[in-house]
């Protein structure tokens, strides 16, 4: 029984069957990649996991609880954090403020009316945020507005915010899309480090085979909204069905 169990999920947009009978089980503390060609339904599946979309049928269970019908913030409070394809951070706030927001969300929950005390006097939050920035190499950018950071730094900022919430499942939606090779490698190293240091489950949607094969312990291949095959990276590489559906056109490095 995995920490995330997707059973018979169907999602239809008008005449398009975006997801057809998707079954997926992500084991706790593993790194699970979901790959597939464009339009395979990867993002739709992810959106079903975080509450942005509601599947037509089927069930999505996280740690034994259904996430269906819950709002994104409720699902996040259950322990699922999402990293977006283009980094979604608070652009006109500083790095430190971004971090503190995530720390407040983790400590105080979805809403707390805390309108009179100064935010800088919340010692535990300030310490935690500073510690987190330190460990993510963002400390010297502390007072910078995040909108003016580089793409790689924004990505690191977003991952740092997600981690400060101590999620049990981290969902990454093409975390290296549009990145230069060097930034991509940095991100891979960062994710590897996170994986080693924490008890965390990572589910990753990715186009870049280099990223997938350096990180994933298990891979699910999605094609036309249906899982083709699920196996270890070694087996996936040589799988004839996968080659046909997906890898055939682009030679695997």
């Amino acid at each position: 029984m995995g920490i995330l169990e997707v059973k018979n999920v169907n999602k239809r947009f008008g005449g398009l069957q975006a997801l057809g009978d998707v079954n997926l089980s992500v084991a706790e503390n593993s790194c699970h990649a979901i790959i597939g060609p464009n339009g395979a339904g990867k993002s739709t599946l992810l959106n079903c996991l975080v509450g942005k979309l509601i599947p037509d049928t089927g069930s999505v269970m996280f740690d034994g609880q259904s996430v269906l019908g819950r709002k994104p913030y409720e699902i996040n409070q259950m322990g699922i954090s999402r990293v977006f394809q283009t980094p979604e951070i608070f652009g006109d706030l500083t790095v430190m403020e971004n971090m503190m927001i995530a720390c407040f969300a983790q400590r105080d929950g979805a809403f707390k009316m805390h309108a009179i005390g100064s935010m800088w006097k919340e010692k535990d939050i300030v310490e935690k945020a500073e510690h987190m920035l330190e460990s993510m190499n963002l400390a010297e950018k502390r007072d910078m507005h995040t909108a003016s950071m580089s793409r790689g730094d924004k990505r690191r900022m977003e991952i740092a915010m997600c981690l400060s919430q101590e999620p049990r499942l981290l969902l990454l939606d093409e975390p290296t899309a549009g990145m230069a090779r060097a930034d991509t490698n940095n991100t891979i190293d960062l994710l590897k480090k996170i994986k080693e240091e924490r008890d965390i489950t990572i589910a990753i949607i990715e186009h870049d085979m280099h990223v997938v094969f350096s990180l994933a312990e298990r891979i699910t291949v999605l094609a036309q909204g249906t899982p083709l095959v699920e196996d270890t990276p070694e087996k996936i590489k040589g799988h004839p069905k996968v080659r046909e559906a997906y890898l055939g056109e682009a030679q695997v490095a």
């Binding site: 409070q77 979604e88 608070f90 652009g91 927001i101 809403f111």
Partner: peptide
């Protein structure tokens, strides 16, 4: 200020 800056991130940060 987070509401003004990015509501999407806010919702996905559990707020």
């Amino acid at each position: 200020r987070a509401v003004k800056s990015n509501q999407q991130r806010m919702n996905y940060t559990g707020l």
